[in-house]
Design a protein around this nucleic acid. Structure first.
Lengths: 225, 225
DNA sequence: TTTAAAAGATAGTATTGCTATCACAAATAA
DNA sequence: TTATTTGTGATAGCAATACTATCTTTTAAA
């Protein structure tokens, strides 16, 4: 049985649904590769078109601009990650065990799940680390938020926040702690690889150490006094 | 007595020292205002030149491109903040009291220190919140790091990390905790104002709550068992 | 089999991100 | 004092980016 996970995306993110055609799927696939390779700043629709073997105008029929495409990719990632979390924490009763699983899923490298789709999750994970926050660190964040572009991210935070509250119902900052561990799972990874003196993991560059750090951070915070 | 704080900047960040002339100082002053107003993405040297009343070519004589200017401004900010921290924690013996001061300085709105310089620290603080991470979230981060562009940021993290270690010498992640609280002081502020459901401060939007959250996070982590 | 939708091909335009050149004024050195 | 350097202003220009428009061909649904 070949299971195909379909993620329902916000329609305001695209002009034509990229999942509805080969060209659209190619846009997603090659944009992940190209952004990964060149970074978001020097990524252009022209280069993407050349990569795919189509024309610039062709890309513009799917996405209004590269910012929308980045928001699409990040939204897709957060939705996918929330599914992964629900799947891998299903039937776990102990919220602390659950939370540990979540932290591992957030901070561990993603193994590419080839049959899932035309999106390489492992590359996308790297994109989220380096470019993810650019999706919301803009002047249009308010507009974009009104259009619900960040719903998948907020949903994920809410899921994590709920587990935190299950661990300790008296803890006062479940949402902020949730967004902190999500952001730090990525930032500490970026720092470890690029500005290692900002972390304690510079020697080994092992993501297991990031996981240990986050576990320590979270579980001492949630310890009932 | 009018004290004038001079920050020694990395010379590779500029082509001509902006602190050495009126035009240069105007570039710094107006770039802070314009980036604050329009965001870094739509900020251009053309617009900046119009704002100042000079020409685009004039700006290019000082800075190679807008990325270098952003890195300059962030480096200036971190240097300035490190000075603030050293100044305001001077003679405090208890490292825990010191750390609390630091967290407050990181997370509290900056009151503009008019006589300090032609840079509006309060606006610059807002720029760091919204644009600061774009200084290093690029493909050139390795190159930029080699040229020591992020030294002020790393120095600040080191200072905070040292205080953390003074609080609890056995704590295993002083640097990562330092970078976490610095980043979160800014991100939680951005979230509070733009994506409030990612935080627990949405109702009141008081930065004192961010400070309380960070204090809780840090001091439970550092509690000796 | 017709007809509509998607894709390809090509053109064009405004803005961005620069570089180059020349003239002029002010500061500085001889 | 004159000569010379240095900074600034003004203008031009060019390649790349970020789109929009139109027309034709292919594909696929009715």
């Amino acid at each position: 049985m070949k299971l195909h996970l379909q993620i329902k995306m916000n329609e305001a993110l695209y002009l034509r649904n990229p999942e509805s055609s080969d060209l659209g799927k190619n846009i997603l696939k090659h944009s992940v590769q190209l952004i990964y390779k060149t970074g978001f700043e020097s990524f252009t629709f022209k280069k993407l078109a050349e990569d795919i073997g189509t024309t610039e105008a062709g890309i513009y029929r799917y996405f209004e601009n590269k910012h929308k495409l980045l928001v699409y990719l990040t939204a897709w990632y957060w939705s996918w990650l929330e599914f992964q979390i629900r799947f891998h924490t299903n039937n776990i009763k102990d919220p602390a065990v659950k939370l540990k699983r979540v932290i591992k899923l957030l901070a561990a490298a993603v193994e590419d799940d080839e049959q899932t789709s035309y999106i390489n999750e492992s590359l996308l994970h790297q994109i989220i680390i380096a470019e993810g926050s650019k999706a919301y660190l803009t002047k249009q964040v308010g507009e974009d938020n009104k259009q619900q572009f960040f719903k998948p991210y907020k949903d994920l935070c809410a899921v994590v926040g709920t587990i935190i509250s299950e661990c300790n119902p008296k803890y006062k900052y479940p949402k902020s702690l949730a967004s902190t561990i999500i952001e730090m799972a990525h930032f500490q990874n970026f720092f470890m690889n690029n500005l290692p003196s900002l972390t304690d993991f510079g020697k080994n560059k092992e993501e297991s150490e990031i996981i240990a750090f986050l576990n320590d951070l979270v579980f001492t915070s949630l310890k009932k006094v």
